[in-house]
């Protein structure tokens, strides 16, 4: 009995630790191992300890270019989703008075998530295509003579897709933070003579930091790892790190894909550490 009591904390933590070990640590460890393997077209995994998979990653100019493009996507999508997400969450939290209405509007935001991610992306194609709705409208209204080409199969289309898919991940944590703000603080700010803008900037934004950080982690991690959206809306022409890995996997080049994945993992971890410096997420959880 005594034995059980002294170790109960460990026992309670054991199931989760085991699951983590089995489904997270072990697979990652295997990816690390494979990233040092040799490979050939006919023999996909040759146990070995070679460094050329990493050498290929770091010596290729393409790597740096794809990372640059991916970072740029990240930055653009992060900025847009942050502004959109903050504005929508602000509206929901402070302008809608009744809880019922808040729930209704919140559900409205989630409607796009009722269909699969693939369908949500493909839906953009008939809209943005050369003979799509947007182009038809532009031509018909006389804004342009010829259809606008860069709407689809371009970086623009990819960014639109990301914003569409990921804004909600920004709204939810920010909304959550906003709902926890003590309303008397806002009243105090008003009483002290702060304008609406000052209240937002000096009271609400600082208190929303954890929500912003969590939302940012979601968005950054998803954009960094994406390879589906970039393929569908980029027409296979726009590069991203995730896509490069997916391409290597589909050609059975597992070791270089593993090496590439480890590099990506490292980069994403660094980014997240950076974001964590801006807000204490533990406090929020």
């Amino acid at each position: 009995m005594e034995w059980l009591r002294s170790r109960s904390a460990y026992l309670q933590a054991a199931p989760l630790s085991l699951i983590f070990l089995l489904f997270f640590v072990l697979p990652i460890a295997m990816v690390v191992v494979v990233s040092f393997f040799d490979y050939q077209a006919y023999q996909i995994l040759i146990p070995d300890f070679v460094l050329f998979n990493y050498q290929d990653v770091f010596s290729s100019e393409v790597t740096y270019r794809t990372y640059f493009i991916t970072f740029r996507f990240c930055l653009m999508v992060w900025a847009i989703t942050l502004v959109l997400g903050f504005a929508i969450a602000y509206f929901l939290a402070f302008h809608i008075r009744t809880i019922t209405m808040q729930i209704v509007l919140f559900l409205l935001c989630t409607i796009p998530f009722w269909t699969s991610i693939v369908i949500r992306m493909i839906a953009w194609i008939p809209l943005l295509g050369r003979n799509g709705l947007v182009n038809n409208a532009l031509v018909a209204s006389g804004f342009t003579d010829a259809p606008v080409e860069w709407l689809l199969y371009s970086e623009f289309a990819v960014v639109i897709g990301y914003v569409h898919l990921y804004t909600l991940f920004m709204i939810v944590p920010i909304f959550n933070s906003m709902m926890r703000i003590d309303r008397s603080l806002l009243e105090a700010a008003t009483d002290a003579g702060a304008s609406g803008w000052q209240t937002t900037w000096n009271v609400i934004v600082p208190l929303c930091k954890p929500g912003i950080a969590i939302g940012s982690i979601f968005v950054v991690a998803m954009v960094m790892g994406d390879f589906v959206t970039v393929n569908v809306l980029g027409g296979g022409q726009v590069a991203s790190v995730g896509k490069a890995i997916a391409a290597e996997l589909s050609y059975l080049q597992f070791p270089p894909a593993a090496a590439n994945s480890m590099v990506l993992l490292g980069v994403v971890i660094l980014l997240i550490m950076l974001l964590m410096r801006f807000a204490d997420i533990r406090k929020e959880l």
Binding site: V62, R65, K243, A244, Y251, Q253
Partner: peptide, 19 residues
Amino acid sequence: TVMDEDRYMVRKWNEFIAA
């Protein structure tokens, strides 16, 4: 086809797609 230089070709093709 699959060429003898398949590994090289696939790498180059990948670079072309990423370019």
